[in-house]
């Protein structure tokens, strides 16, 4: 190969690369693709957000793929590669870590694929097109306010914290304490992590009750731990103790209706997913979402009075 030919080849390759970066549709498919990637669907919250996003994408005429990264940044990276290889028109992602996900989202951006983050933030701006964040802090504050109201702003309580490595565990704990710590009539007599787990919550509450049978309330950073607490209290004959959770899971809403938990805070997964797909569609068709990158979506309080209005992570 002489020098001139090599030059032409380089030019051709560059051109192919540039056009390759722009092109979206897959060969043999008329429909554009939206790749939806979330944590494990074992948790009904993530299943609801994935299902809603896929349904909305199909409604708008897209093909949709749904995959789970199981909170593994490495697996997430692979799934982003697949989305790039498939020439996705957009990625809707509930990410696997605020720091670990930045590079993956950047990689999609470099390949010309816009990302729309749902539920959780990443520690960077200008990489994703949208970050539609479930406002966990606000959710925790309204849960704590209802907990206070139910307790008459006084008494002894236990707090169940989430998995310590999870950003949302810290955010929810901050929200609870920013509200509760302003009341010196309230006394925290126990605080333990139950790692978001129902069985672990059951065991930890059972143990804590041995020296604290006189508590009036238990506030848990998610619904599965709250349900574990309800079971432990029932076992100990302490059904009067007030239990408040967070997430708005179908099991928690059923418990509220059956007189178990007294309140939860619903994260509007359905709204967030629909918003993300709608913004992706607008971005694909017009080149802009028309809204700020970071958007915080408020959570809603669910009590016996309004529980019947709520379904799968959203209003019925």
């Amino acid at each position: 190969m002489n020098l001139r030919n090599a030059f032409v080849l380089t030019l051709a390759l560059s051109a192919a690369w540039f056009t390759g970066c722009q092109s979206a549709p897959r060969a043999g498919s008329q429909k554009k693709l939206i790749a939806i990637i979330t944590p494990s669907h074992d948790n009904p919250f993530f299943k609801a957000e994935a299902d809603t996003a896929a349904a909305r994408a199909r409604e708008l005429g897209y093909e949709a793929t749904v995959n789970s990264h199981d909170d593994d940044a490495h697996k997430q990276d692979k799934l982003i590669d697949v989305a790039i290889a498939n020439g996705a028109a957009a990625i809707v992602l509930d990410n696997a870590g605020a720091d670990a996900s930045v590079a993956a989202v950047q990689k999609a951006k470099a390949a010309g694929i816009p990302s729309f983050l749902i539920d959780r933030e990443i520690n960077a701006t200008g990489v994703a097109v949208s970050q539609i964040v479930s406002n966990n802090y606000q959710g925790a504050t309204i849960g704590a306010q209802e907990f206070l109201r139910l307790l008459g702003e006084k008494g002894k309580y236990i707090e169940l914290v989430g998995r310590e490595s999870d950003t949302n565990a810290a955010i929810r704990a901050r929200g609870y304490h920013d509200v509760l710590d302003k009341y010196d009539t309230l006394k925290q007599v126990g605080r333990q992590s139950a790692n978001w787990s129902q069985t672990e919550a059951f065991q930890k509450v059972e143990t804590m009750l041995q020296s604290n049978r006189d508590i009036q309330g238990i506030i848990a950073a998610n619904d599965t731990m709250a349900l574990g607490a309800v079971a432990a209290l029932k076992n100990a004959g302490l059904e009067k103790v007030i239990v408040v959770g967070l997430d708005g899971s179908p099991d928690a809403i059923a418990s509220i209706q059956a007189g178990g938990m007294r309140a939860t805070v619903l994260q509007p997964a359905a709204t967030i997913s629909r918003l993300a797909v709608d913004q992706a569609h607008k971005y694909i068709t017009t080149g802009s979402t028309g809204v700020s990158e970071k958007q915080a979506i408020d959570c809603e309080l669910v009590t016996p009075a309004n529980a019947a209005q709520y379904g799968l992570f959203g209003k019925k």
């Binding site: 690369w17 390759g20 970066c21 590669d81 790039i84 605020a98 720091d99 930045v102 950047q106 990689k107 951006k109 470099a110 390949a111 520690n123 960077a124 701006t125 200008g126 990489v127 950003t167």
Partner: peptide, 22 residues
């Protein structure tokens, strides 16, 4: 294409986003 993208970033040393830790 991925290689070229990676190489471009590697060569120029550019970090096209800002990382702001929580």
């Amino acid at each position: 294409r991925i290689l070229v993208c990676a190489a471009c970033c590697g060569l120029t040393g550019c970090v096209p986003w800002t990382v702001r830790p929580i």
